[in-house]
Design a protein around this nucleic acid. Structure first.
Length: 274
DNA sequence: CGTTAGCCCTGCTGGC
DNA sequence: TGCCAGCAGGGCTAAC
């Protein structure tokens, strides 16, 4: 499931190929993939527009257009965004929801098995306010132990639930929440408001270290995630606890436990994580 | 306000 | 072999 490292991998891979390109045609095959569900509106605001820049905010990918509009794509669970060099490369693609043809003959394709992924377009004005609801970027300097403590203080909810809340910190999903908490040696069940200053230090460092390591390996391919070039990520082979229930903890050998927190599968070492 | 449960969706898995 | 309940979960909304 694409989280910050997966979305950032896609952004880095397609930035150069798409920057400065003009979207010649936009084709929609599943109206559920776009908001609002209007193909004509979607085409009107995209066709003939040049892509000025490609940015990321949390798990969102932002195509900034010369027109001032921003095409926003969220992959959710099973969304796949690929840059396909050959015009015929998209024929026969399964679960194809929409595609954007570019003026150099290449194509951006959006596939999505579970149909949770969405694309929408923000005007310049809407862009100014839309992102305020999202929390701090965990890899930015403004995400530091002091910030983490100020976000967590007074909150009774479990740390796992806290880390998954995109309004507080933007980009961490189920995989990297588990991995970061393990690295920090803190239980996912602990109340967010109860962590010490020392633990906030550890958790902040663990989050940054985990996300950076995952980006280096182009993300995690447990299931359907692929990079923009169609490759599998490599970080799933480095998971310390996630999806490893019953296997020995890398540090102490205690079997990794699986439980459910905030409606999500949660993996942790009952001995190393207090 | 803070927090959680339910919903959306489809492919895969495991039990019988 | 076939059937089907159960599971996976990001973000939104309703409800407590």
């Amino acid at each position: 499931m694409p989280e910050l490292p997966e979305v950032e991998t896609i952004r880095r891979q397609i930035l150069r190929p798409v920057k400065g390109r003009v979207i010649t045609t936009a084709e929609v095959f599943d109206l559920m993939a776009i908001e609002p569900a209007s193909e004509s509106g979607f085409r009107q605001r995209l066709e003939g527009r040049a892509i000025k820049d490609l940015r990321r905010r949390g798990k969102y990918l932002l195509f900034e257009l010369e027109s001032g509009d921003t095409l926003v794509i969220h992959l959710r669970m099973t969304g796949r965004l690929m840059h396909v060099p050959e015009p015929a490369g998209v024929t026969g693609m399964r679960h194809l929801r929409f595609l954007l043809r570019l003026d150099d003959g290449t194509t951006l394709s959006f596939q999505d098995i579970r149909r949770f992924g969405r694309a929408f377009i923000l005007s310049r004005e809407e862009s100014r306010t839309y992102w305020q609801k999202l929390g701090v970027e965990p890899l930015s300097p403004s995400f530091n132990p002091v910030k983490l403590e100020s976000l967590s203080s007074g909150r009774k909810r479990p740390l796992k639930s806290f880390l998954l809340d995109q309004h507080l910190i933007a980009g961490i999903g189920n995989i990297y929440a588990d991995e970061s908490l393990y690295r920090a040696g803190i239980s996912p069940l602990r109340s967010a408001g109860e962590i010490s200053a020392r633990e906030a230090d550890d958790l902040c460092a663990a989050i940054k270290k985990t996300l950076r390591a995952a980006i280096k390996l182009k993300g995690s391919s447990i299931d359907s995630y692929r990079t923009a070039r169609g490759e599998r990520g490599g970080y799933q082979d480095n998971f310390l606890v996630h999806t490893r229930q019953g296997e020995p903890c890398p540090a102490c050998g205690t079997p990794i436990e699986k439980t459910r927190v905030a409606g999500r599968s949660t993996y942790f070492c009952p001995r190393c994580q207090k």
